[in-house]
Write a protein that binds this DNA or RNA. Structure first.
Lengths: 224, 224
DNA sequence: ATGTCACCTTACCGTTTGGTAATGATGTTT
DNA sequence: AAACATCATTACCAAACGGTAAGGTGACAT
């Protein structure tokens, strides 16, 4: 596992570095938020371990900066600030876990591994849905021995729908997610595209369908 | 957020149910591991809140059962067992977070939301290459704070090139892989597309380039 | 130096993609 | 049942995509 530790206290930094190396992980240690950001821009890592009290910026702001820069790796806060309000703040800012000092090294390790497991495990290149297989990288649906190809827009819509399987998604929401339109242009793009999607998905054993909830939106459903 | 609480203590169950409803979430409450499993088989949820000490099975075993059944929703342990060894056990068994009683409701909520955010915000499978990040699902290259978008054909070519980084790829090979053309149509499609790719990739810190090996083909190289 | 060949670049244009709007169908309300 | 609202479907067309070909550029050999 490739880790980045952002910590300004030398003693703890050395300690954690030693521990992680012992545990067979690769840890890079930065002292300031600025350096950490620069480092992550250059080279990604699996999990970031973040102190809250840094010399140049607090950890909460750093996480927000990361997310704004579209750097989505898991972040674990490791800090002496144990108040519930701090914990909530850290998690709400975009952190994934929050561990307070003093802590047991085994727990830190277990939490890091849990975060890593979740982050890696979460993007299978394929996904089973209803009676068919979705190839997320090649952007097609394989259904029996039928291959269904999709145009970019169609795929975008399909992705959002299936990521919210079973939920009613208002057209407004779909317009935002797929078209990045945050106002109502008074058109029926969504309807038209749903129509096209439906036609492509009506293959015998496909087992997925897009239902209409009148006045509410569309739901993506898998059958059997 | 759709939650499942697995807890045999009635008082706590009622309490959490009330809190979550207040917070605008939908919580379903089961008393036993068996019922929880059955419920999740029928209908998925966003996050499971799990007690460790259940009448019919311990929580750690339940998580393992879930994972074996390919039910991958995030699991948060909520329990009085505060030993480090228990925490490690829970996380290692496949849990995503571990919170000990007594706890603050706001922290539970923040942790649930963090788990939900992470699970939904499906981290795109990314790949680091040269000085930039490739987003394989969204089909774009992120370079510093520059986002480079690609057309389907361009992306197809880029994929093949980078999957054979450092190898000289003859045009014939590229024609087969990207265009699925197994004869020489006597055209310069490849040359033209390489030209378009190069133009898009000439971004300051990008650190990748396509070299020409005269008479042999093209090589995709990463610099620095 | 000059010719030749491979590759680069550009402009062009047919094809595909995808948004619009009109029309038809289907619920829903009165 | 009639009026209305919402959704489905279709045809159309502008814009984007992507293949072609022509002319330019640079490398290499004679």
């Amino acid at each position: 596992m490739k880790l980045l530790l952002v910590e300004d206290e030398p003693e703890l930094g050395r300690q954690v570095t030693a521990w992680m190396n012992d545990a067979g992980h690769q840890l890079h240690w930065e002292n300031t938020a600025r350096q950490a950001l620069a480092s992550l821009q250059k080279e990604s890592c699996d999990v970031v371990i973040l102190d809250v009290g840094l010399p140049d910026m607090d950890g909460f702001s750093l996480v927000q900066r990361l997310r704004e820069a579209d750097l989505r790796m898991p972040v674990l806060f490791l800090t002496a600030r144990a108040d519930v309000s701090d914990r909530v703040k850290g998690l709400a800012a975009g952190g994934d876990d929050y561990l307070t000092k003093p802590f047991a090294f085994e727990e830190l390790l277990a939490r890091l591994e849990a975060l890593h497991r979740r982050a890696n495990n979460h993007v299978p290149s394929q996904r089973l849905l209803g009676g068919c297989r979705l190839d997320l990288v090649r952007r097609r649906v394989i259904c029996g021995n039928e291959h269904i190809e999709f145009q970019p827009r169609e795929w975008g819509l399909l992705e959002v729908l299936m990521n919210h399987e079973g939920r009613v998604l208002p057209k407004k929401f779909l317009l935002e997610q797929v078209w990045d339109i945050h106002f109502d242009p008074g058109t029926n793009v969504v309807d038209a595209m749903v129509c096209r999607l439906r036609r492509k998905l009506e293959v015998p054993g496909c087992g997925v369908q897009i239902e209409t909830i009148r006045g509410k939106g569309y739901v993506f459903k898998t059958l059997a």
